[in-house]
Computed example of a mutant assay.
Amino acid sequence: MGQRLNVRSTGHEEVERVWQRFVPSARLDRIDPKRVSFSWDSVELPGFSTVAYELAASVHSSIRMDDQIMACRLVGDSVRLEADGHSVDPRRPWLGAGGSTEAQWTHTARVRAFVFDRTDAERVARLATGDDRLVLRRLAPSARDRDAGLQWERSFSYVSTALNAVHDDAILAVELRRHALMSTLSAFHTPYLDAMQRTHQRSAAPRTVRRAVAHIEAHAREPLTLEDIAAASGISARGLQHAFRRALDTTPTEYLRLVRLSGAHEELRAGTAVSVAEVARRWGFSSASRFARYHREHYGQNPAQIARMF
């Protein structure tokens, strides 16, 4: 089922040629051809590839991921990464999922990457979450935190090692491909994580709480009080508070804030927002500074950073 590719070369033309087989948009904009040493190992499956290569050269490269998603860890000398002109922390795995990414290093770099077909990845993510509208575009490029980055690196090591051993076994290869995708979508801030959380909450909660959750998500951009939510759920406000705490370990008000925060975050990522303050107002946050604090606590970034990035 899978195709293995091993390349050893000292020619810089080979580097770009091989990369473009897996990522057609890949470009080596600048490379020192006098000192090139290239070692490449990959396994290619339908809609998915694992890539591991080492390149000894001073390089400036670029990719534009329109129809693909690439999760990557680049280790080297004087590494610099930029996503759509904004700096990305090179000490963690990064994600290319729409827009352009540029990488620069000197001497030698080691690259480890998963490359997914975007349409196939969205299909799998929708089946996993039950959200038929889920899209994976223009995602934040940095891993959620250090632990998430380390977990992704462990997943890469496991998947790439296992695929090299069982790439001809169709059943195992498909399972490994799914594991690679789920670990990647969990390591970064993606709609997949939010959808999985909502799915779990709905299935575990009693009927009154599920009705409240559905009402909150349908009317999050409208004025909502605790009493409004309770009335839509057929329970008293006090009873709904207790039900939420037992089922979800939160309150209806806190859940409403989380839904609004998620909606505002998605609007900022869409790149259509006039200002952060306007987005905060539209999603029911009376204070832009309080919205910024909630956003930092939940997403690890200021909302202004997200707006500039996208």
Rank of each mutant, 00 (worst) to 15 (best):
240 L>G: 07
279 V>W: 02
89 D>G: 00
6 N>Y: 12
123 R>V: 06
73 R>Y: 15
125 A>R: 02
212 A>R: 07
7 V>C: 06
69 I>Q: 01
62 S>D: 02
64 R>C: 14
258 L>A: 13
206 P>Y: 07
121 A>M: 10
240 L>Y: 09
135 V>E: 07
38 F>D: 06
289 S>V: 13
117 D>H: 05
157 S>K: 14
259 V>W: 01
134 L>P: 01
1 M>H: 11
80 R>M: 09
60 H>K: 12
173 A>I: 04
278 E>K: 11
178 R>I: 09
270 A>P: 01
45 L>M: 04
10 T>R: 15
204 A>R: 08
195 A>F: 07
244 F>R: 03
71 A>F: 06
68 Q>M: 10
176 L>W: 04
118 R>W: 11
214 A>I: 05
177 R>L: 10
291 F>P: 00
138 R>Q: 11
286 S>C: 08
221 R>P: 04
13 E>P: 01
132 D>Y: 08
70 M>V: 13
11 G>N: 13
151 Q>I: 05
185 L>E: 03
260 R>W: 05
38 F>V: 06
102 E>S: 15
3 Q>P: 00
8 R>E: 13
29 D>G: 05
186 S>V: 05
161 T>G: 14
249 D>T: 03
289 S>E: 15
195 A>M: 08
15 V>P: 02
304 A>Q: 15
248 L>T: 00
56 A>S: 15
232 A>I: 01
283 W>D: 10
108 T>G: 01
118 R>G: 02
280 A>E: 07
105 W>P: 00
127 L>D: 07
47 G>F: 01
197 Q>C: 11
127 L>Q: 14
202 R>Y: 13
100 S>P: 01
99 G>I: 09
131 D>G: 11
205 A>C: 11
48 F>E: 01
297 E>F: 05
227 E>T: 12
296 R>Y: 12
52 A>F: 03
21 R>S: 10
271 G>Q: 12
77 D>Y: 08
160 S>V: 03
89 D>E: 04
216 I>E: 00
127 L>W: 10
58 S>K: 07
119 T>I: 02
239 G>H: 13
230 A>C: 11
89 D>A: 02
28 L>A: 14
158 Y>H: 11
128 A>S: 04
196 M>S: 09
288 A>F: 04
264 A>I: 07
263 G>I: 08
263 G>Q: 15
118 R>T: 03
202 R>C: 10
220 A>V: 10
249 D>M: 07
52 A>T: 03
157 S>V: 08
83 A>C: 09
262 S>P: 00
161 T>M: 11
32 D>E: 14
3 Q>N: 13
230 A>Y: 06
78 S>F: 08
217 E>W: 05
90 P>S: 13
56 A>H: 12
107 H>D: 05
